[in-house]
Design a protein around this nucleic acid. Structure first.
Lengths: 159, 159
DNA sequence: CTCAATTGAATTGTGCGCAATATAAATTAT
DNA sequence: ATAATTTATATTGCGCACAATTCAATTGAG
């Protein structure tokens, strides 16, 4: 109520918290999509989608790894990775082979083409940096903050 | 080459930039998924998915709006929104009606149930805040930085 | 050693996200 | 007024994400 006795909606903290513009989750969600859209034309030239690019980044650092291991590094499960990896295999960028030591494990290794693609990919980060219109230092600082948030969120899940 | 004349791979800036851990895009991507996983059990109680929750947040601020308008606020197109809105209509949270002034336009309005759901949703942000294990001030500061980045990325798209 | 429990991957089903296309309504140009 | 263009939404197809389930291989308890 205001002083005239007319019903006025009180803007509580809970009301404020529900505003779209106040939500960090929406900021993160919409920025992820913005990144995806900036990456799209660059990755089209490599014949990769953005999630496939992430898988290739992980494999360029270390391959001959289990699907499980890849999933832990990328925070993805087999439901996402299995079909994605089959598409990368169809594109002859990776090879999937059952481990002889443990027949449950499928090992992912890069093919020669998969290794070679890394050279073409080297140009990508530079383009992204340009699109972000931001210094490397600023981006790395933000990255650290966001990763810290992600890790706290993931920790909350495990409780 | 090192001093012994043995071939040693030089770690160039381009090599560093391809490291998964150095990529802000992966930080944003994986944090968006982490948020989604934290939201899931909370939103299940409301019968909403996370994108549906975002649509409801937007509508609680202003409804009786065109699909186009909703899309601009959420950075989504009709290919995403049309089926999502049909599901919200099936759940009787919203009503879709053709505008009489412009028959191309579909107006989205909340139903009584749609309005009512807002009360149940008020508890959500508090739970997210707790999971993020972060002060409101820190989160708002990060949010502003991320939104600024998103806006620069989107601006780069328009060029 | 045997059987239950666990583990790693694959499968199924649902819901985004988006490019490309289609369609109908409105606007503009001629 | 008619044709060409633009605009708003819908549809189709593909590729994630992820929950839930299945299945085979491995491990562990008794």
């Amino acid at each position: 109520m205001d002083s005239m006795g007319i019903m006025v909606r009180k803007q509580t903290a809970a009301d404020q918290a529900l505003r779209l513009d106040n939500q960090i989750c929406f900021a993160v969600y919409s920025t992820a999509h913005a990144f995806n859209r900036v990456y799209k034309p660059l990755l089209d030239r490599l014949g990769l989608t953005y999630p496939q690019y992430l898988v290739m980044l992980a494999l360029w650092e270390r391959d001959d790894v289990a699907v499980k291991d890849l999933g832990e590094r990328l925070f993805l499960d087999s439901g996402t990775l299995t079909p994605l990896l089959k598409r990368l295999e169809a594109a002859e960028l990776i090879k999937r082979t059952r481990s002889t030591e443990d027949e449950r494990v499928v090992l992912i290794a890069l093919t020669a083409q998969g290794h070679a693609l890394r050279e073409k990919a080297k140009a990508v980060p530079q383009s992204i940096l340009a699109a972000s219109d931001c210094s490397v230092g600023e981006l790395l600082a933000m990255k650290d903050e966001i990763v810290a948030l992600r890790d706290r969120l993931n920790a909350a899940l495990g409780e």
